[in-house]
Design a protein around this nucleic acid. Structure first.
Lengths: 203, 203
DNA sequence: GTCTATACGCGGATAGAC
DNA sequence: GTCTATCCGCGTATAGAC
């Protein structure tokens, strides 16, 4: 942040994020990380006190970096309806295109300690949910606004989670893997769910 | 199933399911399982060739056991609309009340090998999705029926996943943890999403 | 079926030289 | 900042007695 950060430290964080995301924390040893970075295990312990410390730093980097753009993106939208669509676009893409982010997110929701879950919630979920709740309040839906926003987030996360099973589904078609098709499907579905009218207030 | 199964084997499977669900496969050693069961590690290797073999057996037991009732349950419903409601009820309860099932499910979707994902899909998802797809085809929605069923499943799984973060949410209320409230919320939301009319065709 | 004993490599972590 | 060398407990898995 101050401009004089060691490159090795960043390399470690990037490698660690990727390995943790793909194999899980316990399955990835400090030796593994060191080997991929191209340094010795002892060197890792120079940069990070212990494994837990490395994990936290990797999570902070990934979650902080990836969610930073949203605030600006949402505030640039003219209307609540556009903010809503904008969020769906952004979150679907983030969660489907950035496997490091989405896999670390799932791992934290599954195995994170209460303390780490608190950090995760504040970094990833608090702002978006707070902003979108305002959007929901302006809708004709009589459902609980916060619960509705949670549903929107849930359906996107759920689709990402289920994507792993879709290729093995008997009924499945190939284009379920297409992010753009999913986005359109979700926008239409959620619009109906929260207004009762397809394409209400849309271009 | 044949009545002459060793009790120790079943104990091992039950203990393994629980430990794997709560901590993950790599974090649970054969020693751990043996210790909780109350036998020696060597004894585990008498019943299960290796760790992978124990994992598979535990998964097969949990997924097979928990999903068995659905077939009968759905076929006992009079109308497609009732099948739909029935599924939501059943799946939300399964996923929220049976943490062993839901956590193992998440772990498999996240880290399962293609082979294990194929097994999981056929055990847990294929039948329900196939049956519910028929229900969706009868609805006035113009959305892809299979994609819609995936959305229904996704929103439930997603809510389960997010539940871990809700207690740390600033906007959160206490009753988001109430399964019954969630069920009603989802039924209303999904009914609107797929018919455009709240409570259409409902009692 | 269940035990004791053990092989052997991997894991986190540290000391101290350069 | 990075290395070599090392400690020590844990992990999977096996051999062979009871």
């Amino acid at each position: 942040m101050s401009g004089s950060t060691s490159t090795t430290r960043d390399n470690i964080l990037n490698v660690a994020s990727e390995l943790y995301a793909s194999k899980g924390y316990t399955a990835v040893s400090m030796r593994d990380v060191a080997a991929v970075v191209g340094v010795t295990p002892a060197n890792l312990y120079h940069h990070f006190k212990d494994k837990e410390c490395l994990i936290r730093a990797a999570l902070a980097q990934v979650f902080g970096e990836r969610t930073a753009p949203l605030e600006t993106l949402l505030l640039a939208q003219a209307s609540p309806a556009q903010q809503f669509d904008c969020f769906i676009d952004w979150f679907v893409r983030l969660v489907f295109d950035d496997t490091i982010f989405s896999r670390l997110l799932t791992r934290e929701l599954l195995d994170g300690t209460p303390e780490r879950l608190r950090y995760l919630t504040q970094t990833v979920f608090d702002r978006p949910i707070s902003l979108l709740t305002q959007v929901m309040r302006a809708r004709p839906s009589d459902a609980d606004p916060v619960l509705s926003v949670i549903s929107v987030t849930s359906i996107i996360l759920g689709h990402r989670q289920l994507a792993a099973a879709l290729p093995h589904l008997r009924e499945g078609k190939a284009d379920y893997a297409d992010t753009q098709i999913l986005i359109e499907h979700l926008k239409a579905l959620l619009c109906r769910a929260f207004t009762g009218v397809p394409d209400a207030g849309r271009v």
